[in-house]
Amino acid sequence: MKQRTLVVITAGLSKPSSTRLLADRLTAATAGAAEALGVRVESRTVELRDVAHEITDHLLTGFPPAKLKDVLDAVAAADGLIVVTPIFQASYSGLFKSFADLIERDVLNDKPVLLAATGGTARHSLALEHALRPLFAHLRAATTRTSVFAATEDWGSDEAPLRSRIDRAARELATEMDRREPAVVTDPFLLTTSFEDLLRG
């Protein structure tokens, strides 16, 4: 069976959070959709809260502490990503953006990414389209057509509409992961030009 790796980034602040709940639902649905395509998905979920201090340290010192480096390396090596943020003040949370700011250039090139968010009210659902999608377009990620927003009311009412959005997005992500070769991590120490070329200017 084909193997692919999935990294799930969740920026919820409380434990447990509805953001994590949505992340888990998307992870399970993606694994299921991939299975149907003959792909076994190995997933790892990262709560940004657990590396919040390290994220700040990296911003201030210029290098990632070991615990955060491990997460950034996992993101670079992943065949697909699910990113889930709470919507604060009409956009992604500051912690989520700080983490995004630490993703090196080219790391997300053509990497399938499923965008998701949670919020108190469905009136914020388009934050996915006006905030998260441009951010990941800038990072040159291959975002899925469907993004998933879960408002408070989604958790308390008929589960079918949210489930159908989750399943649709998960199928799209699984399809993108399936049709690509496994991710290749570029070595930052690898020189792309010879010194003679550099000398020629």
Binding site: T61, G62, F63, A66, K69, P188, F189, L190, L191, F195, L198
Partner: peptide
């Protein structure tokens, strides 16, 4: 890495700052 390469090219010394990175 270009600077490590430059040092190597000339056979000069390479000094790693070391103190700000792991």
């Amino acid at each position: 890495p270009e600077i490590a390469e430059q040092a190597a090219y000339y056979g000069d010394g390479f000094f790693a700052n070391h103190i700000f990175w792991p």
